[in-house]
Amino acid sequence: DLSALRVEEVQNVINAMQKILECPICLELIKEPVSTKCDHIFCKFCMLKLLNQKKGPSQCPLCKNDITKRSLQESTRFSQLVEELLKIICAFQLDTGLEYANSYNFAKKENNSPEHLKDEVSIIQSMGYRNRAKRLLQSEPENPSLQETSLSVQLSNLGTVRTLRTKQRIQPQRTSVYIELGSDSSEDTVNKATYCSVGDQELLQITPQGTRDEISLDSAKKAACEFSETDVTNTEHHQPSNNDLNTTEKRAAERHPEKYQGSSVSNLHVEPCGTNTHASSLQHENSSLLLTKDRMNVEKAEF
């Protein structure tokens, strides 16, 4: 173990290094160091905050020279020094078990990766560091076993998940096959086929009936047209017969005018059967003409 005197000496050296690497504005270890034209180094955030307070150039807090945003430059070497100082402080805390008085939040800088452990060898070769390295080497064999167990647990979990997924996939297939086998029997399929065939026959029977009705309507229309044509021909046949009657009536009127007047009046009210309204109107006109002729003949006879 380190003596108290040596611990104090190391602590004083760390404090001196820390004062050199402090920012003059925030009085902390410089984060993202930036250098000016006057070779003074500050935190990048502190300098941008200072420049944004005034429009135009501002003055350096140490030498009062003008500073602009374009004049600022990043210093990589200074950032490396800060990183190495942080590593020294971490090693000091691990070796002594004491917390550094002016320690900052170094938890963000710590890294437990194997590459980081290899890099620590180049920091300080001390008894405390050696003991700590031995402890780490002793704890390393235990870690692979834990990793193997965790991997086995994960693989077993994956296997159970896969088996569950396969079961879920197989179950719908089985149910679907069961439904297909038990849903419709052979008799049901035959009945469905016969039902479809009967429906098709009914459709075939319905369509000819409609065509037959249309044919019957067409035949009825044709018969009505033929009947009207026969009526017209009958009226045409009746007209010459009426003319013959008129000639006979004229002759009778010349011989017996008194008797014919009474008979002509009675004939006005008689309509021949089986004739249309057109034929009756023609008869009325003929009878009126005959009456006028008879009157003329009677007057001539009187004179």
Score class of each variant (00 low, 15 high):
residue 135 R to W: 06
residue 177 V to I: 04
residue 186 S to C: 15
residue 255 R to M: 00
residue 226 E to I: 03
residue 212 R to C: 11
residue 129 Y to C: 03
residue 248 T to W: 04
residue 266 S to V: 09
residue 129 Y to W: 13
residue 248 T to V: 12
residue 78 F to P: 06
residue 255 R to A: 06
residue 11 Q to G: 10
residue 299 E to P: 11
residue 200 D to E: 04
residue 153 V to P: 14
residue 93 Q to N: 07
residue 78 F to A: 15
residue 50 L to N: 03
residue 149 T to H: 09
residue 95 D to S: 00
residue 161 V to Q: 00
residue 200 D to L: 04
residue 296 M to T: 11
residue 56 G to R: 03
residue 110 E to H: 08
residue 219 S to V: 14
residue 73 Q to K: 11
residue 16 A to W: 04
residue 75 S to Q: 15
residue 82 V to W: 06
residue 156 S to F: 08
residue 38 C to I: 00
residue 50 L to V: 12
residue 39 D to A: 07
residue 81 L to F: 05
residue 57 P to F: 07
residue 4 A to V: 02
residue 260 Y to G: 09
residue 154 Q to S: 09
residue 143 N to I: 06
residue 44 K to L: 01
residue 35 S to A: 13
residue 157 N to F: 01
residue 144 P to I: 15
residue 38 C to F: 00
residue 173 Q to K: 04
residue 266 S to E: 14
residue 144 P to F: 07
residue 276 N to Q: 13
residue 36 T to N: 00
residue 142 E to S: 09
residue 214 E to V: 06
residue 5 L to E: 14
residue 221 K to C: 05
residue 199 G to F: 02
residue 70 R to T: 04
residue 94 L to R: 12
residue 135 R to T: 13
residue 145 S to V: 14
residue 292 T to I: 14
residue 261 Q to E: 04
residue 254 E to F: 08
residue 131 N to W: 10
residue 206 I to A: 07
residue 45 F to A: 15
residue 41 I to Q: 03
residue 94 L to D: 11
residue 276 N to Y: 09
residue 216 S to G: 05
residue 26 C to A: 00
residue 2 L to S: 14
residue 134 K to P: 06
residue 160 T to G: 11
residue 219 S to E: 12
residue 165 R to E: 13
residue 135 R to G: 13
residue 249 E to F: 12
residue 208 P to S: 07
residue 272 P to T: 15
residue 157 N to D: 08
residue 141 P to H: 11
residue 20 I to C: 02
residue 231 D to N: 12
residue 20 I to Y: 13
residue 66 D to K: 15
residue 216 S to L: 09
residue 297 N to T: 14
residue 206 I to S: 15
residue 161 V to E: 11
residue 217 L to Q: 09
residue 18 Q to H: 10
residue 22 E to L: 01
residue 213 D to N: 01
residue 77 R to L: 15
residue 75 S to R: 05
residue 262 G to Y: 01
residue 123 I to T: 06
residue 189 T to Y: 06
residue 33 P to T: 08
residue 38 C to V: 00
residue 135 R to I: 05
residue 51 L to Y: 05
residue 213 D to S: 06
residue 198 V to G: 14
residue 134 K to F: 02
residue 165 R to W: 07
residue 143 N to Q: 07
residue 141 P to L: 08
residue 253 A to E: 12
residue 4 A to Y: 12
